[in-house]
């Protein structure tokens, strides 16, 4: 655990720093491999920039909308750089909306765009795991297993490490390779499928997740919904492909988009 790093008079919040590195590295990788997925690098750059701007502005706007009374006497706080004053869930939804409008206006291929974003999403999620490791969040339930780590007064499941290993596994499987793109959307849907499986399983070992009625955890429900969505869309894509290229499927030869 390393929540802060003191550099002279500066105190660096390590988890936030790791997330920033993850965002930067992820965008760089996605841009680098954009051609592999048949997308334009500049269009992808613009899309990510719009999404990030909407995410930051939307997160602050969402926070203000949730707690307007807190800003009544001090409107200047709206401009505070404090990271605790962002509602990232609300901002993420606003970011998705802006990205959808951008894709529609520029008439980009949605599935190819999503495929080209998989390196960015994976890198960010890996950085998220590292930031959890640094902050001690996302900690596991107590265990007697030999690989338990001492954290928060007990030997616990290293859920952050499980997450990191799962991300490495997905990255090895989905590392951009032109010959592995069976249909547009393949990489993104496989990523979503594997993420939902990993999240659903690791969640069971977490001690700090939100529970719903009857022991069901909210992230597990989200993961299940993501699993259903990815399977449904994969089925659609495979069916579409069979309709377009029936001979190739019959003969077991190449899939073309």
């Amino acid at each position: 655990m390393l929540p802060t790093l003191t550099l002279g008079p500066l105190v660096l919040p390590v988890p936030a720093f790791l997330l920033l590195i993850g965002v930067w590295l992820g965008i760089t990788l996605s841009e680098k491999f954009a051609h592999t997925y048949g997308t334009d690098r500049n269009q992808l750059s613009s899309l990510v920039s719009f999404f990030l701007a909407a995410l930051v502005i939307g997160s602050r706007a969402s926070f203000i909308a949730r707690y307007p009374g807190a800003f009544m006497n001090n409107w200047l706080s709206v401009l505070s750089p404090n990271l605790a004053m962002f509602d990232w869930t609300g901002g993420f939804l606003i970011g998705l909306l802006v990205a959808a409008i951008f894709i529609s206006r520029r008439q980009l291929d949605v599935w190819k765009t999503l495929d080209s974003l998989t390196p960015a999403i994976l890198t960010f999620l890996f950085a998220l795991g590292l930031s959890y490791l640094a902050s001690g969040q996302y900690y596991g339930v107590p265990t007697r297993l030999p690989w338990g780590i001492p954290l928060w007064g007990a030997l616990r499941h290293p859920t952050q490490v499980y997450w990191l290993l799962w991300m490495i596994g997905i990255a090895i499987l989905l590392w951009p390779r032109p010959r592995r793109q069976w249909f547009p959307g393949f990489s993104f849907l496989i990523l979503l499928l594997l993420l939902s499986i990993g999240m659903g399983v690791i969640e069971y070992f977490r001690a700090d997740s939100q529970s719903l009625l009857g022991g069901l955890r909210i992230p597990q429900l989200y993961a299940f919904l993501a699993l259903c969505f990815s399977l449904w869309q994969m089925g659609n894509r495979i069916r579409d492909f069979q309709l377009l290229h029936p001979q190739e499927v019959q003969n077991g030869s190449d899939f073309h988009s």
Binding site: Y67, G69, A70, S77, S80, N82
Partner: peptide
């Protein structure tokens, strides 16, 4: 950890 924390944040957290 760190600051300064603005008044709006303190009130929002209280809420």
């Amino acid at each position: 950890v760190g600051g300064p924390l603005p008044q709006a944040l303190l009130l929002a957290e209280f809420q």
